[in-house]
Structures are given as C-alpha cells and as structure tokens.
Simulated assay, not measured.
Amino acid sequence: MSLKTALNEVNNAVLDLQSADYNTYHRPIQRLSAALHSESLRAITEQLKADVDFDAFVSDSDEGGSMIGSATLNWPKDRQKELGLAIHIIDRGAEDAGWFLNFSHHWYHAGNKFVANIRKVTTAVIIPFARDFKTYVESLRPAHTFAVEPNDFHRVFIVHGHDEAPRETVARFLSTVGLDPVILHEQANKGMTIPEKLAAYANVGFAVVLLTPDDEGRVKDAAEMQFRARQNVILELGYFVGRLGRDRVFALLKGQIEIPSDYVGVAYTAFDEGGGWRQNLALELEAAGYDIDWNKVMRRG
C-alpha cells in the first residue's frame, strides 16, 4: 500500500466511523488501525506509540468525582505525544470492542447511549488525530532530491523568454548539427516546482540564453523606458554561469535591450536574421568540448 493510499484509507475509515452506530462502529476502528500499521505508515506509527506511556497517561488523568461524565484526560501539549496516545486508543479499540465502549463511556460520556459516547470520542479525538497525523506524515516527507549526474555533452539547455521564434530557430539549429536542445516547459513536471525542475534538467554541458525584448523597465530617475529580457531569463543566465562557467554560456541578444549591469563587458552575440550567430555558437560549442560537424553548420549559414 502506497503512502497516499494508506492516508486515504485512514481518512475513509474515519468517515465511516462518523456515520457508524452501536452495531457497526468496530469495523471502521479496525480498518483505521490496519491502515496506520500498513507498510508505508508502520514505522511512523510505531515510533509515535513508543514515545508515550499510555497507561501512565490514563492513571495521571483526572478521574473526576462520583458524577458520571466528570472524568477528564490530561492530554499533553506536545502534538507528537498526542498523536501517539491517540494511536494507542485506536489500536486498543481495534483489538477489543468492549474496551473501546468502556473507555468512551468513562472519559467521553455523552449520555446513557453507548453510540453517543462513541461519537463524542470520534469527534474529540479521532477526527483531529486523522487531520494532524496526515500533516505530521507529510512534514516528514523529503523534498525532491536529484542525483548529481555528469554533464551531458550531447544536450544544450535553451533559456528563453516570450519570443518563440528565436527559441525554435535555435532549437532547430542544434538538432540539425546533431545535438539535443533542452527546453524547460517541454520536460515532464513530475510534481516539481520550477526551481526543482530547472535543477533536474540542468545536467548539460552548455546553455544558450536568448535575451529578447519581452519587458520594459527603467531605473528610478530615468525618463524613458528600456526594453529588457524577462526576469526569469536573467535569473537562469546567472544560474548557468554559476553552474557551468561563463565560457559555457552563450548569450544571444535580439534587438536593443538593457544589459544586466553585473554582466557588462561580457561578449554578446546578436541574433541576426542572416544567421551569422550560428557560426559563433558552433565555435563556442566546439571550444566547450562538443563534437561539431561543420558541414552541417555551414549548410545552415
């Protein structure tokens, strides 16, 4: 049973328990206990139980006076200990239906009908437990991690903005010379955030960054607006310079746009309609260790 399936089973068992009566309440408790001890949740469940002493918890609670319904459990403030104690209640109830009836009657008395007591302990203990247990389990799940793979000198990452034409032109050129262009939005998400996805597909040996005039902006006291590349493009430009080194990042500039101040002095190549950028890109790729077929390059010139 997967983790997602086990948590769904916990939720379904609690839903069934909410609508159960005196004759049917025991089965949902058994299902709930079984789900908590399924393979994907067992280690967490057993650890939470091991961290608390259920019998001491009960004996240290307020038994109340002679008045029925006056007994009160002294729940700890620690949320994990609360979870562990609730699991003890569920497990004992699953093992012994009579114990669960007596426990709910004594500590969660809501009248002379047993079903009223069952529903009170369900509302006060088991429903909050299911909610908080899921949150706790999800907090333990690791964030996406990715194996560090060697840079693939057959792949080239293309960083781009909103202008699709240059992106497609560069991708076609790379494919023609036998390389594999990597465009982020064309890759599978696999539940990743954008930064996680970028890191997952960045095991390339080279990146082409297309600086196209997609945005406008100006410094505070300037009168005129200037064309700028998208912020994500500038961010990814810096990312690949840091990851691969400046000599493995090829910046293609389309039109008159503002250059990032920290990158002034670095050579940019103009994205010219005549295609002269192709030879410059091929030279940089070859210098970076890529195997370039110049016959294919020149046919695209």
Rank of each mutant, 00 (worst) to 15 (best):
M1G: 09
K4R: 15
D16E: 14
Y22S: 14
T24M: 05
S33Q: 08
A34K: 07
A35W: 00
L36Q: 01
S38L: 01
R42T: 08
A43K: 15
I44S: 12
I44D: 13
E46Q: 15
K49R: 15
V52T: 15
D53I: 10
E63L: 13
G64P: 13
G65Q: 09
M67H: 08
S70P: 06
A71E: 08
N74H: 12
N74K: 13
P76V: 02
D78K: 10
L85P: 10
H88D: 13
G98L: 15
L101I: 12
F103N: 01
A110S: 13
T123S: 14
V137N: 09
R141H: 08
H144E: 03
F146H: 11
F146G: 07
A147M: 11
V148Y: 10
P150M: 04
V159N: 06
E164R: 14
T169R: 05
R172E: 15
L174K: 10
L174Y: 09
T176F: 01
L184M: 13
H185N: 09
E186Q: 11
N203E: 09
G205T: 12
L210C: 01
V233A: 05
I234P: 06
E236W: 04
L237S: 04
L237N: 04
V241Q: 14
G242K: 05
R243I: 06
L244F: 04
Y268T: 07
A270F: 06
D272E: 14
L283I: 10
Y290P: 11
V297C: 02
V297I: 10
R299G: 00
R299K: 12
R299C: 00
